[in-house]
Design a protein around this nucleic acid. Structure first.
Lengths: 146, 146
DNA sequence: CTAGGAACTGGAGCGGACTCCAGCGCAAGT
DNA sequence: ACTTGCGCTGGAGTCCGCTCCAGTTCCTAG
């Protein structure tokens, strides 16, 4: 017993369980990602089990970032399929990532504006309470132009 | 003809079309939101059509913000159901909004970190191109602890 | 009166992203 | 040999958030 489950990262090749633990993605999700073609270079051991190379693990982490930032699975797949690490593919990959970076920036900006709106709304309720009122009118919107 | 479709906002009561145009939410979505109990105070004209009060319109906009920032519909509903603008409900509404504001902050932080990762990745590919290499190893991840 | 256009309703359908499951195989422990 | 546990596979199921549709009812213009 005491199987070395915790860190069989001997020479940077790990099983699906460890990838799951390191990334927080469920094992099912990892398998699903692979089927969807989001993770290259997942080899198998003689027993047929997945062995994630350091490269694959890193890739999973990148995919996680892309997904988390709202890139659709289909688009992640596109990115991955510019694959094989060939020099010729670097440029389109960069293009794709740059586009996405721009998306993220917009997201952040929107989120920050929305955060402000929520804060505003909070202030509005605080104000109502302070003056003991039930409700004046509309939620405290600050802009009028859409 | 030349029906005054553009701005029948006479005295702050508007039809669903205008709400749609102002918010960017589809008419179907607006109706669906209403069925889901996300929008209070949508009255009907004698012809049975929806008339959004200024309050209702403002509320739609707030709902939009909440949804956009990742609040699930069910939770928006909770918020709305603390309704009627009664003083007693202000406090729990504030609590809910503050919680959500905290969520947004985390989201923003995560998003910014992820943006950095993507930029990093771009730099990585740039570097590879610069030195004419196909691919070294893993995607340029910067942290190792999950 | 007729035609057209906009909204209404209830309900079905859809796309995305997982999540769960049954049934099987291997490898190690007892 | 047998049991236990992890992993594998293909496919079905689920959840969320809309989106679409058929059929009907107005209202207004011609």
């Amino acid at each position: 017993m005491v199987r070395v489950t915790a860190s069989p990262s001997t020479r940077g090749v790990v099983g699906i369980r460890e990838v799951s633990e390191r990334t927080g993605l469920s094992i099912d999700t990892l398998r699903w990602y692979e089927r969807q073609g989001l993770v290259p270079d997942v080899r198998r051991g003689t027993d047929g089990r997945r062995r994630y190379s350091t490269y694959a693990l890193g890739f999973v982490q990148l995919v996680q970032v892309l997904r988390r930032t709202g890139m659709p699975v289909a688009r992640v797949r596109e990115f991955v399929q510019l694959g094989g690490g060939e020099l010729a593919h670097h440029a389109p990959r960069i293009a794709l990532l740059e586009q996405h970076a721009a998306c993220i920036e917009k997201l952040v900006a929107q989120l920050q504006a929305d955060h402000a709106t929520v804060q505003n709304e909070i202030a509005h309720y605080r104000d109502l309470i302070a003056r003991g009122e039930d409700c004046t009118d509309e939620p405290a919107e600050q802009d009028g132009r859409g």
